[in-house]
């Protein structure tokens, strides 16, 4: 554990809580891509299956359970409780265009051809692109509410901080994981355009 890893995790947690609270408080999921949220739920589910097979630390287990729980709660709010406010017409990105190629890649490029390892690799690859339906939706409607941009900022910041974590771990622990690093770089790059808009406009974004 180092400062980049910890702040990265907290940034990730902040993003998830911000989104959940926004939907809950406004009783609306307008402007939120349900498809991105389904993909994140899939990411956490396939990555944290090791909850059932190995215990690493209380911190690790707690965070995993919170992430998974919040992901499913968010999907529930969007598709069940506040379904009437869900803007499905603008959430038209095809999930299979991400899930199928990512699944194929996970089978081809992984550390070990075993069930759990392939699912873990799948989750890493999928996470790197899971935000695309949300970004696509914003580009389609041409706007995003302020709170939605805060959500995206923390979500993007989290993986950027993980990049520093991996640099730290490489220098001080000699540890590196090429799959996580490359996917993390792709993920962070996808947010760069958004970061620019967030910093220069600071408020809700309208393109």
């Amino acid at each position: 554990m180092n400062i980049f890893r910890l702040t990265g995790d907290l940034s990730h947690l902040a993003a998830i809580i911000i989104l959940l609270l926004k939907i809950w408080k406004t009783r609306s999921c307008a402007g939120i891509s349900g498809k991105s949220q389904i993909l994140f739920a899939l990411v956490f589910t396939t990555r944290y299956l090791d909850l059932l097979t190995s215990f690493i630390s209380l911190y690790n287990t707690t965070m995993k359970v919170i992430y998974i729980g919040c992901a499913y709660a968010t999907v529930y709010l969007i598709y069940m409780k506040f379904k009437a406010t869900y803007d499905g017409n603008h959430d038209s990105f095809r999930m299979e265009f991400l899930v199928v190629p990512v699944g194929g890649l996970a089978c081809l490029v992984n550390h070990d051809f075993s069930f759990l390892e392939i699912l873990w690799t799948f989750s890493i690859y999928l996470e790197s692109v899971a935000i695309l339906p949300q970004l696509f939706m914003i580009s389609k409607t041409g706007e995003a509410e302020t709170i939605t941009t805060h959500y995206l900022f923390f979500l993007g910041l989290y993986r950027a901080l993980y990049l520093f974590n991996w640099i730290w771990r490489f220098y001080f622990e000699g540890f590196f994981d090429m799959i996580a690093i490359v996917a993390g770089m792709v993920q962070t790059i996808l947010y760069c355009d958004f970061f620019y808009l967030y910093v220069t406009k600071g408020q809700g974004i309208s393109l």
Binding site: I56, N60, N165, D177
Partner: peptide
């Protein structure tokens, strides 16, 4: 991470 490594990162 090697396959048998515990996956500490989230």
């Amino acid at each position: 991470a090697e396959a048998d490594d515990d996956k500490d990162e989230l």
